[in-house]
Design a protein around this nucleic acid. Structure first.
Ligand SMILES: [Mn+2]
Ligand SMILES: [Mn+2]
Ligand SMILES: [Zn+2]
Ligand SMILES: [Zn+2]
Lengths: 128, 128
DNA sequence: TTCATATTTGTAATCAATACATTATTTTGT
DNA sequence: ACAAAATAATGTATTGATTACAAATATGAA
């Protein structure tokens, strides 16, 4: 599987799930969706797996939703938008320029998250 | 208190606490620190208060720490840094330029968060 | 095969956050 | 000032995401 992770069945399936479902799901959603395919799967394994995958840099861990952590199979940093109405998380496909300005704080930075919140296009149209 | 919030004792004290303690505390910390001064305070009141203050725009609600929500008495948006070693949250005092580029996604955006994570200056020095 | 290691599983525990009912305080109208 | 209504605070119970932990299973090297 690369990233120095042994490609067990749950790990491969979680990784594939995240690559195929670009919805930024949480652990519970991943678990429920994979259970039919892997009946022996336990939720703890999903927790273990996303933990491992994210610490190795294979997936992104999002804290945009304060209810629970969400995950993204695309590990290149990119901005996200959370709709406060429907709860969906969208990708925003531009590269934030802010990342570059970090020289003068002397912390060692290894992660950047850019989060936007508001009402999504779809919800706006329903409200008209 | 302005922001259309009736200035009850707990509300004033929570607001003052956040203005005086620039540590981005969570509810439990606010509660424990104010309890000696307001012995009747309940944690539910602190939850209610930060909820009210943040929805009125008087304080910032941070989701940088996946364990719990943290709060900031400075309500102007500014970037934050979380140290993965010691857990401290620092202000980064530059204005991110990324915010401006949001035209072409047609969502209605009312909140922007820019979060950095890594190892803070202090922890780096201890490790030497 | 055998042993050591890594992984998975299931259950129990933790703990932040919320729900809700009760009490207290403040405001409004008289 | 008084009564009624509205708002706020409190305490307890509950929810629900996440973690801890121990037992079972699978993997890989020797
Ligand atoms: Mn994404
Ligand atoms: Mn701050
Ligand atoms: Zn929406
Ligand atoms: Zn630190």
């Amino acid at each position: 599987m690369a990233y120095g992770i042994r490609p067990s069945l749950p790990r491969v399936e979680v990784m594939l799930y995240l690559l195929e479902h670009r919805t930024h799901p949480n652990v519970d959603t991943i678990y429920k969706d994979l259970l039919p395919k892997i009946p022996s799967l336990s939720k703890t394994t999903v927790y273990n797996t996303v933990q491992r995958l994210s610490e190795k840099g294979a997936i992104l861990r999002l804290t945009i939703d304060e209810k629970n952590v969400c995950f993204d199979g695309i590990s290149e940093p990119h901005p996200h938008f959370l709709c406060k109405k429907c709860g969906k998380i969208y990708d925003l496909n531009f590269v934030p320029k802010a990342n570059i300005q970090l020289d003068f704080s002397e912390h060692l930075i290894d992660e950047v998250s850019l989060y936007y919140r508001g009402i999504c296009k779809e919800c706006l149209e329903k409200m008209k």
